[in-house]
């Protein structure tokens, strides 16, 4: 199902980048959309080096073993969105930015989570994985989580970003993240292994970022009923992203602010 021309989104695919740049570009796009310089946008991206992102309201020391991250060459970044800590390794990450006045941003926060997570659900279905939205902000298949998502509203715009787990290494994840109760760590790891899966697990074969792009692009077209126009980040968005990467997301004061 294709939407009418008024429901046009720019589509950009920015490949692998550092955590600070990735978060900077999401905010740079939000700034450009807020100021009417850019169209509503769907972006796909990935992380190199691998990274841990924490939610805006999380404590850095509570959640992250910084020494382990440093030893393994893993970036650490604080997001502008709430939600939990995420280990970004083998995944496809997306962001969606649109004005709050856009028809796709109508309704409650939960309504818009459901609608936008539909892009992930439809992408998974296109791969033969029977997935569904699980409130508040997850997508599950066979009762296991395959995707986490986080939304905010800023400067009159909606920003939602989220991950699709293409592969998952729970032991590596817990080598980098702290747990609320160290004595229960072993049990928690087993619980997470039972509750989290990946596209590769579900398909029974390795499934990577390059292969995921077309499936999830189709998924968002179907779920949002939009036309996607292939584009690039503007020079101003890239400048903004680099500035934010240096001055905000790469700044210890931001990362450790809570």
């Amino acid at each position: 199902m294709m939407g009418d021309f008024s429901m046009r989104f720019r589509f950009i695919e920015t490949g692998y980048a550092s955590a600070a740049f990735n978060m900077g570009l999401d905010e740079g796009i939000l700034n450009a959309v807020a100021e009417g310089r850019s169209e509503p946008t769907l972006r796909f991206y990935a992380w190199r080096p691998r990274a841990v992102s924490i939610g805006y309201f999380q404590g850095l020391e509570d959640e992250v073993d910084e020494a382990a991250c440093s030893a393994r060459g893993v970036d650490v970044v604080r997001r502008v969105t709430g939600g939990g800590a995420v280990y970004h390794a083998d995944e496809l990450t997306y962001s969606v930015v649109m004005p709050e006045s856009h028809p796709l941003a109508a309704g409650s926060i939960l309504d818009s989570y459901r609608l936008l997570c539909g892009g992930v659900v439809e992408g998974l279905k296109a791969l033969g994985i029977d997935a569904e939205f699980a409130p508040i902000n997850d997508v599950v298949a066979g009762g296991k989580k395959l995707s986490g998502n986080a939304q905010t509203r800023k400067r009159g715009c909606l920003l939602q970003h989220g991950t699709v787990l293409l592969g998952v290494d729970v032991d590596e994840m817990f080598a980098l993240l702290k747990v609320p109760n160290e004595k229960l760590k072993g049990k928690l790891i087993e619980d997470v292994k039972a509750r989290v899966s990946s596209v590769s697990d579900r398909l029974g074969r390795p499934f990577g970022y390059a292969e995921a792009l077309s499936a999830f692009k189709l998924g968002f077209v179907k779920a949002l009923a939009v036309n996607l126009a292939d584009g690039e980040p503007s020079p101003a968005e890239l400048d903004d992203a680099r500035r934010l990467a240096a001055e905000k997301f790469g700044d210890r004061a931001w990362t450790a602010k809570r």
Partner: peptide
């Protein structure tokens, strides 16, 4: 007092 966790609130800075 410190209120931390994986909840959501926006505008975040107002929290």
């Amino acid at each position: 007092v410190s209120v931390r966790g994986d909840f959501f609130a926006h505008p975040e800075e107002r929290f």
